[in-house]
Design a protein around this nucleic acid. Structure first.
Lengths: 220, 220
DNA sequence: CCTCCGTTGGATCGTCGCTCCAATCAAGCT
DNA sequence: AGCTTGATTGGAGCGACGATCCAACGGAGG
């Protein structure tokens, strides 16, 4: 039995994590299997486990990478309110582009990478003259909202299996089901069905951020 | 080879789902395996799959049951604002008691059981005189917030593996790590560490709901 | 009493994450 | 140059999972 030749270029933690990220981006969470990784890197399990603790480690590190990249790319605006909106949108867009990041963040919400996010929000609330005693609750609420929406969106994105069906097709599907509920029992849901079909996730997310900002402003 | 005796009392979808719920409540998501179910019900795979489509079906139905039970138990108050707070708290407490419900809802946010939740919120926003054009965004935002926080809490609860370590011990752990971050780089996070140790998830959640309500009021 | 069909139990399959160890090679030593 | 050693690699194998499939069962209707 001939053994396949040993690789000469060094395998490294970085290379492995990048390969994992590519697998995740192209095929979603379920595409990241150790077997797929060994094939892609043409190596074996041992080599991978020598650089990485386990699959959790892999997912967590890949997630941290994406988050860090996003947060460093957010532009600071003169207006703290605008900066905050930009920050929130940055995270939203990142998770929209990499739904698996949302799922992983919902599983481990206290990853170190989110420290920067939390810190930024705290400072911006300070700049917005939020009283100190309310700042903790306000920051927590905002973080929870942003992560919450992002996770929901990730779930919706995961619903589209391979990318065959379009996002709008998915919305049409849900909207159609909502349109067929009993208008007597569910007047609001029924009336909302049309708006659901036309709505823009990104805009609705920003509208939510604005509601919370208005509420926070009302605190002082 | 002797076959174990055939059961005489009828197995039913309800019995299976209740057993699944008990497994989930006692051991978390990873405790629900088909093998564990066959042992608990002293039956085989075939019997279970005869009544249930697959494991997703199991999880989804169990989740629907919990949600429905919660929503039917929420008292309607004269003040729509109070009713809304009660509704949100009801979902919060339910997911706090059954963390797996939070995880499942984040995976499938459009389950029929949430229709009632969405409908109730829509009506309450109407009672709060939220302009119709803003009601859709407002309802979506609130649902996202409630589900988002609930999911985070579920994730934290899942962090405590078997219930050995206490919830406060977990908070102490996170707070300790936050207290040791570089105060120069993360002044806000550092300053927040003490509040984190003392904070009450439930109260903070309610504070978030109040921020939202204040923001809604500012819309009109 | 018999037949039939809705149920039931469990052997089996393919895949998963992960462990374990022999094989391999580069760097350091004499 | 030859030897040694330890870090690194590749892959067989393990136990557990969700799911499928089918033979065996037994109560309801004739």
């Amino acid at each position: 039995m001939k053994r396949s030749p040993r690789r000469t270029d060094g395998l490294s933690r970085e290379v492995i994590i990048q390969a994992a990220t590519e697998l995740l981006d192209s095929g979603g969470e379920r595409a990241l299997t150790l077997r797929a990784l060994t094939v892609r890197l043409s190596t074996g399990y041992g080599a991978i486990y020598h650089h990485v603790a386990d699959k959790n480690d892999l997912l967590a590190t890949a997630t941290d990478d994406v988050i860090t990249r996003v947060l460093s790319g957010v532009a600071a605006d003169a207006d703290p309110r605008e900066t905050l909106r930009g920050l929130a949108l940055g995270l939203f867009d990142a998770i929209d582009a990499h739904p698996w990041v949302g799922a992983e963040l919902s599983r481990q919400p206290w990853r170190p990478a989110l420290l920067d996010f939390y810190e930024s929000i705290g400072r911006l609330l300070d700049a917005l003259a939020v009283p100190e005693r309310a700042r903790f609750d306000a920051a927590g609420t905002l973080v929870n909202y942003v992560l919450g929406v992002a996770v929901q969106n990730a779930a919706n994105a995961r619903y589209l299996v391979g990318g065959d069906t379009d996002r709008s097709a998915f919305l049409d599907d849900v909207a159609a089901r909502w349109a067929h509920v009993d208008p007597g029992r569910y007047p609001f849901v029924h009336a909302t069905a049309t708006q659901l079909r036309e709505h823009d996730d990104r805009k609705q997310f920003l509208a939510g951020v604005d509601i919370f900002l208005a509420g926070i402003a009302a605190l002082s």
